[in-house]
């Protein structure tokens, strides 16, 4: 028994070392690139002396945590990968109104009374040039015989941006559900979330991702992977990442300072460095920007459940 006790004390001691208390601080719940938030936090702390506590997960996991701790909210700032969060929280009155002075160069459609976009990703076709297939140029190309059994797509039930792509494409009269029926006919697979769709294409089991998240594909490309990011001719959808301050925040001044920092030239350069599109139009990036893309509109009135059900039915993933 004394061995147990000794073990316990030793482990407790090692845990105590890792726990630290924060003095002046701001807590950020964020979806999306871990490297980006850590760089932003480090830069912000260096500039202001305010510590940043980070919780990073997927949008869904972050929302689950926020909802579960609603009785005792812990976050000051939420950065989501889905605009729905901003609209929904805004409607529930959970958000603090704030317009950052640095948001001047952010286009109007990327900011609201109580939210502003950190950066934007878009969906694209990610194609492996070593796959022996011709380079696709548009979504509809992927129903062709060249790509039979060689296409993957993130599951719209697990990826908010993939859902928006489906909603936007089926709303287009020239495309409609026929596109997805054709893709199903062509044996496209829907293996899971974004990473699960990209991996088989990298290894060569498949050739093309239909609706890959662009910045992840750019990052892979920079790491030397054989992957090309193609923005389809008929347009695509974007996923802006809204930042918002919670009404319940006990550190509202620090939170505002953090938003200002993310929207500063320095902060936006960090966003651009992760291959996201910066929300400020005056920041350069090494990739196509919003102004270079044809953006498809998504009707917010689309019946989400029905769309997902139809998609699942077509691909037999009910």
């Amino acid at each position: 028994m004394h061995k147990f006790t000794a073990l316990l004390l030793a482990s407790a001691a090692s845990l105590a070392l890792t726990a630290a208390a924060n003095a002046q601080s701001v807590t950020v719940y964020t979806a999306g690139p871990a490297d980006l938030i850590e760089e932003l936090a480090a830069g912000f702390t260096a500039e202001t002396g305010i510590e940043v506590g980070i919780f990073q997960a997927t949008t869904g996991q972050m929302m689950a945590r926020l909802e579960a701790e609603a009785a005792n909210p812990q976050a000051d700032i939420v950065i989501s990968a889905s605009m729905d969060t901003a609209y929904d929280f805004g409607a529930q009155g959970l958000l603090l109104d704030y317009t950052s002075p640095n948001a001047e160069n952010v286009p109007d459609f990327l900011k609201g009374e109580n939210w502003v976009v950190q950066g934007i990703s878009a969906l694209a076709i990610a194609w492996n040039p070593n796959s022996g297939t011709p380079e696709p140029t548009d979504w509809t190309d992927l129903t062709g015989e060249d790509y039979r059994d060689l296409v993957t797509m993130p599951d719209p039930a697990q990826s908010g941006s993939a859902y928006e792509l489906v909603a936007a494409l089926v709303a287009n009269e020239a495309i409609g559900w026929e596109l997805f029926e054709g893709l199903a006919e062509n044996e496209m697979i829907v293996p899971g979330a974004n990473a699960a769709a990209l991996n088989p294409v990298l290894q060569g089991a498949k050739a093309v991702v239909f609706g890959a998240v662009d910045y992840i594909s750019f990052n892979s490309q920079q790491a030397g992977e054989s992957i090309e990011v193609i923005f389809p001719a008929s347009g695509t959808v974007i996923a802006p990442r809204p930042m918002m301050i919670l009404e319940t925040s006990q550190n509202q001044d620090e939170a505002k300072a953090f938003i200002d920092y993310v929207l500063s030239e320095e902060g936006q350069a960090m966003v651009a460095a992760t291959n996201l599109m910066p929300s400020r139009t005056d920041i350069a990036a090494d990739r196509p920007l919003i102004s270079d893309l044809d953006i498809l509109d998504v009707d917010p009135e689309t019946d989400r459940a029905a769309t997902l059900a139809r998609f699942a039915e077509i691909f037999g993933i009910e």
């Binding site: 997927t58 949008t59 869904g60 996991q61 929302m63 689950a64 889905s82 729905d84 969060t85 929904d88 599951d155 039930a157 697990q158 990826s159 908010g160 859902y163 697979i189 829907v190 293996p191 899971g192 979330a193 691909f315 037999g316 993933i317 009910e318």
Partner: peptide, 19 residues
Amino acid sequence: ARSGFLVLVTGIEQKLSDY
């Protein structure tokens, strides 16, 4: 999942993973 074999946990995860 890609071959259409879904289980209860898939449904649970879905309820927690997206808006």
